[in-house]
Amino acid sequence: MSTSITPESRGDAKRDSGRRRGRSDKTGHGTDAKLPKPAKTQVRLGDRVFLGSSRGAGILLLVIMAAIAVFLVVEALDALGKNDGNFLTDSTWVTDGAKPAFGVAGLVGGTVISAAIAMLIAVPVAVGVALFITHYAPRRVAQTLGYIVDLLAAVPSVVFGLWGLVFLSPKLIGLHTWLSDYLGWIPIFDKDDAGATARTLFTCGIILAIMVLPIIAAVTREVFLQVPRAHEEAALALGATRWEMIRTAVLPFGKPGIISASMLGLGRALGETIAVAMVLSSSQELVFKFLDPGGNTIAANIANQFGESNELGRGALIASGLVLFFLTLLVNGAARVVINRHKEFSGANA
């Protein structure tokens, strides 16, 4: 085996061994049929128990996944049956009284807007970070710098929330005013409430960007490391500058990787709960002006409302959680499809 194991060679080795093992199993079976030995059956028992329990663990995992979907759907349908409003187009959240009416339009809007802001900031920076670590940083310190960026992923979200609320959001008031002063003619940049705090969807977007950045950077870095060296050297040998080499050899190769990494990050940004719940000064209506306080996300709404909700309210929150579940499922599924089509860089280490 060579000293450097690339994922391709690993995959090959695995497939290879699988074939080989499959064959040896078969021949074992064949000799067994001819010469039955009592000692063999004992061995078989251990193997059978071990295979059974490990397969059982795998099946249990599938059962858990199925149970998640089933239980959420059942509880959600229960609550939706009592809903007086339209669940998909309303943006009110009244779950007690004679006429409960709740809908996720405002929540989905806030979730999508904050995640979109996060993506717009995080993806270019993360690609830059990945390029820096793979192609610009001195080789000796590159790995350490990679670890340092990974540390950002280890910071718990509640700490992000606390930091965002106490430290970051007061500092962003100026940026909010500046953006609305100069870009206010674009409707979404308009700011109604001039002196307000910066506990807005925009601030949440920035915090989400910081949170998903290390995830995107890690996967993108893995992809950039797998660009064939021959391509890079060919570009340089033709007289390309480093940037031209990156543009012609690295980025085209890494493009599917960047896309799928971004979608993994998007999945995380959509589902982030506590940081948004702490920072955002929320309201139920559908908010497009993200520089004004207000708006809410699905996950943050669950965290904020759950404690004070009655039975029906919790069912309604579960229904909104189901929407979030399908939303992230869709995004992650798309990311996996892209990754699997280019099997050599699975995002497994992210």
């Binding site: 995992l61 599938l62 589902g271 709960t273 579960i318 979030l324 992230t328 992650n332 599924g333």
Partner: peptide, 22 residues
């Protein structure tokens, strides 16, 4: 199983909480 392990990685933590609650 491989596919659903991937799917499971992407489950938002609040959804896992809601599932255990229900």
């Amino acid at each position: 199983i491989t596919f659903f392990v991937d799917v499971m990685t992407g489950i938002p933590s609040i959804v896992a909480g809601l599932f255990v609650y229900s």
